[in-house]
Design a protein around this nucleic acid. Structure first.
Lengths: 133, 133
DNA sequence: GGAATATCTCTACAAATGTAAATTATTTTG
DNA sequence: CAAAATAATTTACATTTGTAGAGATATTCC
């Protein structure tokens, strides 16, 4: 039976976001690979990256599997799950769960191009049709 | 000269969100008032609330003014600013700044009612008109 | 004035987060 | 094989966050 995700979605710290995004783009992957991938952006040393990754394994955000010399990491949360967790927590903390104000804020926060507005509108339209059905 | 907010918007922790929301609803206000207002929800003691509030003053999120016996607190960030900061940081961390996927995720994350969809659509419409002008 | 009440101040402490050096083991390569 | 390069392990440490107790002060009420 397919069941509606029961465990609340994860929340990641800023550092963890950087890591997991790199992992999603490279998995399965090693810690050295990730530190290399992030070095330009973060200048983190191998130690730092490794520590973060192991903590994330401990938290259930990734898995690690030791194959001989190297340790391979894989994400245990999908991008979707993580994004959703983040968004829902913002919705809850900052907007008391009220969706419309959140969207309003989003619209105001950035000067949106007409293209973006059109895209968003299309999403809504599609969802509406989807609901009707 | 009116200048475009240069300092990046604040980021608040979960505890800080609880506090500031209570402050917005009561300011200017005292620490005891806030702890009372939050007690049902958080069960925090006076010490806890007070510590949090003073830290927030140190961070520039609020001001405090000692009038005789009591200390009065006032927010230094508006709800708008704080919400915006939260949203933008989520946008950046979790969505690499891409707006449309974020909205998509939002739409998927909750089963939206037709009413909500309509509301959001109205927001978009309004913004579009606004852009044109 | 003393007891009760309300506040404040100071100090504390554990957990989480960000960051990394030092040491050890392993592998590659001249 | 010895030297060089890689990767892993262990340990550390400062800062931030969550949470609060204890003691000092001022205020009010009997």
């Amino acid at each position: 039976m397919r069941m509606r995700s029961t465990s609340k979605p994860p929340e990641l710290t800023r550092a963890e976001w950087k890591i997991i995004k790199a992992v999603w783009d490279n998995e399965p992957c090693t810690a050295p690979a990730i530190q290399e991938a992030l070095f330009k952006q973060t200048a983190w040393t191998y130690s730092t990256v490794r520590t973060l990754m192991d903590r994330m394994v401990a938290k259930g955000l990734m898995t690690s599997e030791k194959t001989g010399k190297m340790t391979l990491y894989r994400s245990r949360v999908t991008r979707q799950q993580a994004q959703r967790g983040e968004l829902l927590s913002t919705l809850k903390n900052a907007f008391n769960g009220a969706l419309t104000p959140m969207v309003q804020c989003l619209i105001d926060a950035r000067r949106l191009s007409e293209t973006e507005l059109a895209e968003i509108e299309a999403l809504i339209e599609s969802k509406k049709r989807n609901l009707k059905k």
